[in-house]
């Protein structure tokens, strides 16, 4: 049976998430020593203090609580690092060695090589940032000591079958809900703009006369568009037809920006039926940055979908999808019929 891997960021959440159906937990850690030098940007990619543990003692206690319930805990260390950061990175790993994490989730080749060199007790999972789309990539990471691969969101069900059947000795994890990136996570080089602008008020007012005539506003709130991730901006789009070497004004020919079609939550629950037939071992709920109650309801939702399979092993795919979509409405508070445009695997429901 598939397991559910759930994000957490406070010790108090551990028991509640396990009670809701989490089989595995994962979390991030933003060390104060790192934040002092390098800010909260991009140590492990997700939203700084709001998404991560910041105190080692608290983190250790949380891991202990999970282990008391026989639930493994994985630490996400999936940032990218440059050479000047390695001395501090090494010190942080020294500290983390004192906590019995079951695995480190890594994306950076250098960190992977470092962990391998240090022969840590914890296993190594390859983050979605490892960009695995084929069986030989698994060979590559297996050769470097990986025991689990988190498949990219864009890996199709057919590819899951191919990759997992070629590597029964490796565990595979697939995304199942939230944050369906339009672009490939590990190949997307946009900087997400967490905390790019301060909330401080600007005190200096330019003395230019023309400007004085205008109402001066202090930037206490910002243009939402400008703060949005680059993949979610409402761009002005012009189409160039290379056959005509000209700019087209025909608005019918436009790229498809899925994020602008958003309604409902990004979800792949209907595909659980098919994923269960591949060698994937675990379903990943995304969202360390999301509110605790949301992560709790997501966990209950995915558990309810897995229970459909558990309780009725002979269930037909169509019936499963219908029940999964009913669960989606119940747990995600979505009233309309699922249109599939935020679907991880739309091929499944076509």
């Amino acid at each position: 049976m598939l397991k559910i891997s759930v994000p957490f960021r406070e010790e108090e959440e551990v028991n509640a998430l396990i009670d809701a159906g989490a089989d595995e937990l994962y979390c991030g850690y933003l060390p104060p020593s790192w934040e002092r030098i390098y800010t909260d940007l991009e140590f492990e990619r997700k939203g700084g203090r709001k998404s991560n543990f910041t105190e080692l003692g608290v983190l250790k206690k949380a891991v202990h609580t999970a282990h008391n319930r026989n639930v493994p805990v994985y630490l996400t260390l999936n940032g990218l690092y440059v050479n000047s950061q390695y001395p501090l990175l090494n010190k942080i790993i020294d500290q983390l060695e004192g906590i019995a994490f079951d695995s480190f989730i890594v994306a950076d080749l250098g960190l992977l090589l470092l962990l391998r060199k240090r022969r840590l007790k914890s296993k190594i999972h390859i983050s979605t940032g490892g960009t695995v789309f084929n069986s030989r990539s698994v060979d590559f990471y297996k050769g470097l000591g990986a025991s689990r691969i988190v498949l990219d969101r864009q890996v199709s069900i057919d590819s899951m079958k191919n990759i997992t059947s070629a590597h029964p000795e490796i565990e595979f994890e697939a995304f199942i809900i939230n944050t369906l990136c339009v672009y490939i996570d590990g190949f997307c080089t946009f900087t997400h703009m967490y905390n790019l602008y301060t909330d401080e008020k600007q005190k200096r007012i330019p003395k230019d006369t023309k400007e004085k005539k205008m109402l001066l506003s202090i930037a206490s709130s910002y243009d939402i568009d400008s703060r949005a991730d680059a993949c979610c901006l409402k761009y002005d789009v012009k189409t160039i037809d290379l056959d005509k070497s000209d700019i087209i004004v025909d608005k019918k020919i436009k790229p498809v920006f899925f994020k602008q079609l958003t309604d409902g939550r990004e979800c792949g629950a209907c595909a659980i039926y098919d994923i269960a037939l591949t060698g994937v071992k675990s379903l990943k709920i995304v969202g360390r940055q999301l509110a605790p109650e949301l992560r709790l309801s997501d966990t209950r939702f995915i558990r309810a979908c897995l229970d459909i399979l558990k309780d009725n092993k002979k269930i037909k795919k169509d019936k499963f999808i219908q029940l999964a979509q009913d669960n989606y409405k119940d747990y995600c508070g979505y009233k309309d019929k699922c249109r599939g445009n935020n679907c991880y695997h739309p091929g499944v429901i076509l």
Partner: peptide, 19 residues
């Protein structure tokens, strides 16, 4: 009407340049 909005970018430490 026109409103002047001043955005203050977070000061990135120089230590992040090589990143």
């Amino acid at each position: 009407g026109k409103v002047k909005q001043i955005l203050i970018q977070k000061k990135l430490p120089l230590s992040l340049d090589d990143y």
